[in-house]
Amino acid sequence: MHQAFETRFAHNLLAAKPPTPSKRFAVYRNNVFVGLVEALRLRFPAVQNAVGADFFLALARDYAGGNPPSSPLMMQYGDQFPTFIEGFPPLADFPWLADLARLEVAITQSYHAADAAALGPHDFARIAPEDLSRLRMTLHPAMRLIVSRFPVTTLWRMNRGEAPLATIEAWSAETALIYRPHFTVAVDALSPASGTFLTSLYAGDTLADAVEQAALIDDHFDLTTQWQCLINNGLVTTLTLDD
């Protein structure tokens, strides 16, 4: 009886139209949908701003009905929302929205990611110049990179009220760097070459290989600036040398 009761109740909660529409049962349906939509609204404020509150509500309800959370960890709810947006026909003309959603997924992941002590300038100062090329780095667990064909960081800033809404003249690719100085998540825009450099280091490549990858994209790639970015933003937790 218990199992059959639960199956029926759960089915009616998520069904598009409940078979017995009573206001009392609707309280539970409402709690479930409102709770899930609210979780998405809190996690994807830039997407909501971009599509408008009414459209977002319809989008989020559509997602929630077919994709209830798979675990009680609501901080993970919406990890698949970018993929859903990508396949949502009414949004086909806005291919950058999925990347905007990916950036917002990464922000929550960064917020909850593991702690690790970042290396400081003195740690980097100890590296002998002749060792630089065979240097490998472990990057901070709260760091994320979103590589995009679109100006994803600029779009995010505008939709979060951190930059004035304006026509984006230079509609160019950006990689978003998400990191967490003093437990507060920050988002910076990187050029594709700088993004490639960090992606390469993140994958465990040597510094020489990472520079080479970046130079393939931009032969004016400037290591000095990226070196400061790594140190000042606390992105590196360990340094090792190849034998």
């Binding site: 639960e6 109740f9 759960a10 539970y28 709690n31 479930v32 709770g35 798979s70 675990s71 009680p72």
Partner: peptide, 16 residues
């Protein structure tokens, strides 16, 4: 209860 068949329903649901 709040979980059924692997789906977390994010509410405190009643039972007989």
């Amino acid at each position: 209860w709040s979980t059924h068949a692997g789906a977390f329903l994010n509410d405190l649901l009643p039972l007989p």
